[in-house]
């Protein structure tokens, strides 16, 4: 995908809300990434997904159960060691152009929640010829990337074995 989601200004604002305790203490994260593209969703979207999650929860150990379809769509639910519930779904839909169909992250706190549509901000343009959406605004602050290989291996292994696995991100 062309636009790194971790630079999305709404997400960086949401992270500031978590760090500033504007929604209390973080207790759950829910992430959905669905894109048009080919290949294995965990490999294609996994690194960015883990980066998004880790930037919200911080580095933490987690017990997770994953499921995957034959064509690579992957879901996992994890219980982090500090009690945060993290769920995520990653999948690819064959076709062109290669772009996100859905990218949302929800951060649930003890005193409120933040829902971020990672594909915004955008303009809705509707004409007699049809409807389209046009993004606007500069990207937010880049979050340093970290290695997610071990986490992605644990997710893949959980999906293969049908058993919960421990990992860290």
């Amino acid at each position: 995908m062309t636009v790194p989601l971790t630079t999305q200004p709404g997400f960086t604002r949401a992270l500031a809300a978590v760090r500033g305790a504007e929604i209390g203490l973080l207790r759950a994260v829910a992430l959905d990434l669905v894109a048009v593209g080919e290949g294995d969703a965990l490999r294609e979207l996994g690194p960015e997904a883990i980066e998004l999650i880790r930037s919200a929860t911080g580095p933490v150990s987690v017990e997770l159960q994953a499921h995957a379809t034959a064509d690579g769509a992957t879901t996992f639910l994890g219980r982090a060691s500090h009690g945060i519930a993290v769920s995520a779904h990653l999948s690819l839909v064959a076709g062109e152009p290669r772009e996100y169909l859905r990218a949302t992250i929800r951060l649930v706190g003890t005193h409120g929640s933040v829902l971020v549509d990672l594909l915004r901000p955008l303009l809705d343009v509707r004409t007699a010829a049809g409807a389209r959406q046009v993004r606007f605004g500069p990207p937010g602050t880049q979050i340093p990337a970290a290695d997610a290989a071990d986490t992605l291996s644990a997710i893949a292994e959980s999906a293969r074995s049908g058993r919960a696995k421990s990992t860290t991100w």
Binding site: R27, A28, A30, Q65, H67, T69, T75, L77, A85, G109
Partner: peptide, 25 residues
């Protein structure tokens, strides 16, 4: 009062069901 259930299906598909009565406000 906050519950997340992850369902697995024989097809490899999955579902995440989240139900809460403990949200704020």
């Amino acid at each position: 009062d906050y519950l997340v259930m992850e369902l697995g299906f024989a097809s490899g598909g999955s579902a995440v069901c989240e139900i809460s009565r403990g949200e704020r406000p």
